[in-house]
Design a protein around this nucleic acid. Structure first.
Lengths: 221, 221
DNA sequence: GTCTATAGGTGGATAGAC
DNA sequence: GTCTATCCACCTATAGAC
């Protein structure tokens, strides 16, 4: 069957997302995909090649979409300051819209989040594309927030990425722990919440009052 | 030797932090700790019990410190609004100060970050303590930000936690990718940056303008 | 308490018939 | 292209001598 390859990829995607890549044996993928025991090695050659195929097929377009959105910001902003919100949106929206509308959507986004916190796989598959996106984000953020030092701006970029990755990875947990209050299945609302939070963090005052970071209780001591 | 147990815990801590728990075979811990092959099962009984011992010993106090800081905020704020910065500080500082001053510090914090993104282990070891801390954070945040809906406030709490976890987990990567610009070994600066970012995100305007979350490029279309 | 040896199971990968 | 059967490396855990 010509579907064999796709069945394997589909099953692997779900299992990787649910349990992590290292924790899923090829035998389990074989059982889930209902294909022959030797099919994976016939079609992909090795587990690592299967992982690459899953990732590039599913997530390759994400960084291209990001790059396109960042390009649009670059061109339309001209010599004016680009909006921090727009830069955040360019990072967040393509990632959160992975698998939009499909039944596997949640699993796919969770897997994307895993990928971004496992540098071993990230570098393996996406190094070129991601480095390029990262470079453009840095350049745009520097224009959007010139009053920040490079150090503070870069710190904030990492922390903003952290909140995005957490939302991608922990969708299931967020919905469960909040008892449905935060509906991670509503992708567009998730995007708005994330963009607003990240932009507010990036836009925090340039000069910080160190004293505010001391807990109330210890002020009495 | 009475140190055997401690040597095992030390070696396991480092290896778990560096490679992840599932990826570290007991044999490797044995080799690193330079103890006998059967020592782990003699002292701990199983790998899972070793994992528990490592976690409770190293990270048990963190949530107690958090609870104490949150108590202090509660008492000192009286009927006034507690400061968002102080609540964030109570969550961040105890976690980022894990292993403070020790050579293993970075590895320990990285492991703590892993723990917080692997619900399987989190629930296993810390469920009671963490649930209590989470409950207090919710209550204080509701008092600090009454103008926010429960939904928006809860979303922001998760995103703030996400940035904290990312900084804990990816210290090595952050320092490397920023080419030293962000010095994750400087724990106190990391705490200040995180608290400021998280608080700014939590404090973002209550009413959002949905239009700002549209990229500049698509405004022309 | 410490050691050696090994049982019992699971992983990825392959050979060779059809 | 698909299947069965199997190899070999590695894992956790245990048995039993010292």
């Amino acid at each position: 069957m010509a579907d064999t390859k796709q069945q394997i990829i589909d099953a692997a995607t779900c299992l990787f997302a649910e349990h992590g890549i290292g924790a899923v044996p090829l035998r389990r993928i074989i059982a889930e995909a209902q294909v022959n025991a030797a099919a994976i090695h016939y079609h992909f050659g090795s587990k690592e090649e299967l992982v690459k195929a899953v990732f590039t097929g599913r997530f390759g377009p994400v960084n291209e979409e990001r790059a396109a959105l960042l390009d649009a910001i670059d061109q339309s902003s001209g010599s004016a300051r680009p909006a921090v919100e727009d830069i955040c949106y360019a990072l967040v929206a393509p990632a959160l819209r992975i698998g939009r509308g499909t039944e596997q959507g949640r699993l796919l986004r969770s897997l994307a989040g895993r990928l971004m916190t496992e540098p071993q796989y990230m570098e393996l598959v996406f190094s070129d594309l991601f480095v390029e996106v990262d470079r453009r984000v840095d350049a745009l953020m520097a224009r959007a927030l010139p009053e920040l030092s490079d150090e503070v701006r870069t710190w904030r970029k990492f922390m903003a990425m952290g909140s995005m990755v957490f939302v991608l990875r922990e969708q299931e947990w967020i919905s469960k722990v909040s008892r449905g209050l935060c509906d991670t299945a509503d992708v567009e609302t998730s995007i708005r919440r994330l963009v607003q939070f990240m932009a507010a963090g990036m836009n925090a005052a340039a000069v910080e009052a160190a004293e505010t970071a001391v807990p109330a209780g210890s002020r009495n001591g």
